[in-house]
Design a binder for these strands. Structure first.
Lengths: 217, 217
DNA sequence: CATACGTCAATACATTTGTATATATAACCG
DNA sequence: CGGTTATATATACAAATGTATTGACGTATG
C-alpha cells in the first residue's frame, strides 16, 4: 500500500555543506528549459531534483513554481535593462545606431541565453502575475526607447510622428524577432538581425515622414 | 490494492448515441483554455472528461494531445485565411484599407475567440510540430499580404521598398497586437486597433519612402 | 549551557496522469 | 445468419505530482 520506497534520495552522497539559495533554484529551473517547455510546465519536484534538494525544501525559497517564475522574469528584466543601457551608450558614439542596438540585443540573447528566452517566450502565457511582470519589463524598454527617440529628434532635427507608438512598434517587433531568433541555429541569426534592422528603419522613416506631413498640413 | 474505484464513469448516464467526432474533442479542448493555459498543458484525461468520453477513446481520434493541438492550429489558420480573403475584398471597395483590415482581424478574434487565441498565444511554445504549424499559417498571411502590397504598388504608383520584409513586419505586429488585445476587456480593444493602424501606416509610409530614396540614388 | 530558529531530508498519502488490456456494442459485408 | 471492424467502455497499474508531518542538524541568541 505504500508508495515511494526509497528512491528520491536527492542528489545525495555529496555532503551538502552550503545551504541552497533561491538563485540556485532559479538556475536549476532555467537549465531544465529547452525551446519547447514553458516555466510553468516544470514541476516542483523536477526543479528540486535538478537543484539537488528534497522536494519540500523548495518551499523554503518559493511559495510556488509560479513564484519562482516571476523571480526569473525580474531577473531577465534586469539583464534586459542592462542591454538597453549599453546599447544606448553605443548609440551616442557610433552612427549606425539601429544596427548596433539590435546586435547588442541579440548578443545578450545569446549570452544570457535561457533567462532572456524565458521572457521572450512566455510573454503570452502563464499566470497573471507572470504576464504582468513581463509587461512591466516591456514598458521599461518602450519608455527608454521613446525617450531616446525624442532626444534624437532634437539633435538631428528629424521629428518623430508619434514617438510613443513608434517605440511600442519597434519594441514589439524587436521582441518578436528576438523570440524567433532565440530558437534558431546561431548561423541564421544574422539574417534575423538584418531583417529587424530594416524593419526598424521602415518604422522610423515612416514616423518621420508622417511627422513632416502632419506638420505641413 | 486497487486504485480508481468506480469514479470516472464518463459523463455517463446520458445514453450516447452519436459517436464522438474529432471536432468534438477539439471543441472540448478549446473550452478548457482560458487566458493562462496552453494547449499542451491540458492532459489527455482532462480533455476526454470534458468531451464526455473514456480516456482511452481519445486515441481513436488523436495520437497525442500535441496531435490535437496541431489540428487546432490548422483550424485556426483556415479561419484566419478566411479573414484575410474577406479583408481583401473590402480592400478593393473602400479606401481606408488598413483600418478595415485590422478591424476585420480583431473582429474575427472576437468571434472565433479561443481558436484564434490559441494560434496567437502559442506561437512560441509547444512541440516543434506545433510551432511549425503556426509558422506555416503566419507565412500564409505574410505571402498574401506581400502579394497585395505589390499589387497595390502598381495601382497607386507607390512602390514598396522591400515588400516581403514590410509584410513580415506588419504581420508580426498585427499578431503581437492581436495577442495583446486578446486578453483585454473588449472596450479597450478599440485603442489597440487604433494603435495598430498607426503602426502599420508607419511601416508602409517608411517602406514607400525608402523605396523612393533608393530609386533616386 | 539551553533553547529557539533556519535549513533540509525522509516518509507518507491522496490525486492525477498516460497507457495496457480486455470487453461490449453497433454497423457493415459475405 | 456469422464474422469482421470500428467505436467506446471499464479496469488496472506504475509513475509522477503537490503537500503534510516529523525530525535531524547546525548556527545563533538568550
Amino acid at each position: 500500500m505504500n508508495s515511494e520506497k526509497k528512491i528520491e534520495t536527492a542528489a545525495s552522497a555529496g555532503k551538502r555543506k552550503k545551504p541552497i539559495t533561491a538563485q540556485d533554484l532559479m538556475n536549476a529551473a532555467v537549465k531544465l528549459l529547452d525551446s519547447h517547455r514553458s516555466v510553468s510546465s516544470l514541476s516542483l519536484r523536477e526543479i528540486a531534483r535538478a537543484a539537488g534538494i528534497a522536494p519540500n525544501s523548495f518551499y523554503r525559497h518559493f511559495r510556488d513554481v509560479d513564484d519562482l517564475a516571476v523571480a526569473l522574469i525580474d531577473q531577465a528584466g534586469r539583464s534586459l535593462r542592462g542591454v538597453i543601457r549599453e546599447a544606448r551608450q553605443r548609440l551616442s558614439l557610433e552612427r549606425s545606431a539601429i544596427r548596433t542596438s539590435v546586435e547588442a540585443f541579440m548578443e545578450q540573447l545569446d549570452a544570457e541565453q535561457k533567462t532572456l528566452h524565458i521572457l521572450l517566450r512566455e510573454m503570452s502565457i502563464g499566470s497573471p502575475a507572470f504576464r504582468q511582470a513581463v509587461d512591466r519589463e516591456l514598458r521599461y524598454f518602450e519608455d527608454e526607447l521613446c525617450e531616446e527617440l525624442t532626444r534624437m529628434a532634437k539633435v538631428t532635427g528629424h521629428a518623430t510622428y508619434e514617438p510613443a507608438l513608434a517605440s511600442k512598434a519597434i519594441t514589439r517587433l524587436v521582441f518578436t524577432m528576438g523570440a524567433a531568433a532565440a530558437d534558431l541555429p546561431p548561423e541564421e541569426r544574422g539574417q534575423i538581425i538584418d531583417e529587424t534592422v530594416v524593419m526598424i528603419k521602415m518604422i522610423m522613416e515612416g514616423a518621420q515622414s508622417l511627422a513632416k506631413r502632419s506638420a505641413k498640413k
